[in-house]
Design a binder for these strands. Structure first.
Lengths: 237, 237
DNA sequence: CGACAGGTTGAGTGAGCTCAAGTCGGGTGG
DNA sequence: CCACCCGACTTGAGCTCACTCAACCTGTCG
């Protein structure tokens, strides 16, 4: 087990901050459960997913070492499952109280983090083509867990597909094609090296000029995070 | 509900809570601006949108009378624009401070609301077909601004399309088909009556059995979360 | 070894995109 | 008042990208 040998100066919260272990695939909490606790990942990977009546699921995020998840108001809006074996710290209902200025942060910053995560998910889904989504996903994942340019994906193709609202076939095909084009290299299904980050960024931003002759006004495709000084197009009137 | 600890009890709220008017199409704040204020809608409609480098946009939400928007940590992650003429109350940077227990609520509940909004957006985008998205959008909008079963959409088809990640053509076609099927009635582009809410709900939940002979295993909709055994029956229409 | 889960790849199909008219209504000017 | 324009919307025709169906490969585990 993990020993928290004095790294935290002094813990005064008598709320049980227990350490839990989950095996691959285990459910941490289910959609609809009362949202009593939130969790911080000590090691491993966790996914949160929305389940629909028709059986399909939408993964709303992957969480890695250090991340916090399970921030919900009343009941959990999504379920959480271990993608790979995970060690978690469960923090009992402290999040609703706006103190805990130490450690991971207070209620507002936790919620901000959750909001940020949700908006990242929207960005992924808003991108339209499979190439854009996969490229954006790879970049986001690499930024989070990538050592230099290689990363080991802890999740399956099905997880990626349900995260990007694609099928596993399309995810697999798209990765294969990126590898064929030399943008990435696949060393087994889980191990990916990003050979051409710039190209991948172009793809993620919707620039597909290389694939088709389709010209877009990507002249200013420079990596400005936002800017988009908005040419003429703005909503009329 | 939420306990405020004494240490942050007081903080003067002399910040200007000003009332502002915006004309149709006017920008309230831009993506990337420092997020100093949040807003409450007194009247009118507002949309928030993410802008991508390639020019396309993802509307992350529509906000109506009483709603609050502009909750962001550091800088605005999306821009906000008036869909129709809007009167807003601007609330200066109070949101970062966990007080303001009066009026619309404190920081945590505002953030919860924003999070809830974001997750609704994810649900819309995660659903797959155009029919599902449009049906879900209509239901959500009717729940929010619908008097009984008729509603007047303040936004254009382009707004709806950018919200659902579809084209205006597909939105228009889908609405026309729903009208043709008698699920809704169109009285001009903006005025919609929901004639068959149950049917619309079925469509929104991914049940399209009525449209095609396509059988889904919806009989056991409560089955395993994944499974996908799919007994290859009746799939070749 | 066989069974099975995860992954890849090919062939064919169709939902939604693109391109292209055409309609409708409101505003403006002659 | 009508002619004209323009923006919003609708609708048709064709195409394409991602889904479906299907086969096969690979590695792991009992």
């Amino acid at each position: 087990m993990i020993k928290l040998s004095g790294q935290i100066a002094y813990r005064r919260t008598t709320v049980a901050n227990t350490t839990l272990k989950f095996r691959k695939g285990e459910i941490i909490y289910a959609q609809g459960d009362p949202a009593t606790d939130w969790y911080q990942i000590i090691s491993g990977t966790v996914r949160t997913c929305l389940l629909y009546p028709d059986g399909h699921r939408q993964l709303t995020g992957f969480y890695y070492s250090g991340d916090v998840f399970g921030i919900d108001a009343d009941t959990y809006r999504s379920s959480a499952e271990a993608v790979a074996a995970a060690v978690l710290r469960r923090c009992g209902r402290g999040f609703a109280a706006p103190d805990t200025p130490d450690e991971v942060g207070n209620a507002s910053s936790l919620l901000q983090g959750a909001l940020s995560h949700a908006q990242a998910c929207i960005s992924l889904l808003g991108r339209r083509t499979a190439h854009e989504r996969v490229a954006a996903f790879l970049l986001a994942t690499a930024r989070r867990i990538g050592g230099s340019n290689s990363l080991r994906l802890p999740m399956t193709r099905a997880d990626i597909a349900d995260h990007l609202a694609l099928t596993i076939h399309t995810v697999s095909r798209t990765l294969s094609e990126l590898a064929r084009r030399g943008v990435i290299a696949l060393d087994g299904p889980q191990s990916i090296a990003i050979l051409n980050p710039a190209q991948l960024r172009l793809l993620a931003d919707g620039d597909e000029d290389d694939r088709l002759g389709r010209q877009r006004t990507t002249a200013a495709a420079l990596g400005g995070p936002v800017a988009t000084s908005v040419p003429a197009v703005l909503c009329g009137s």
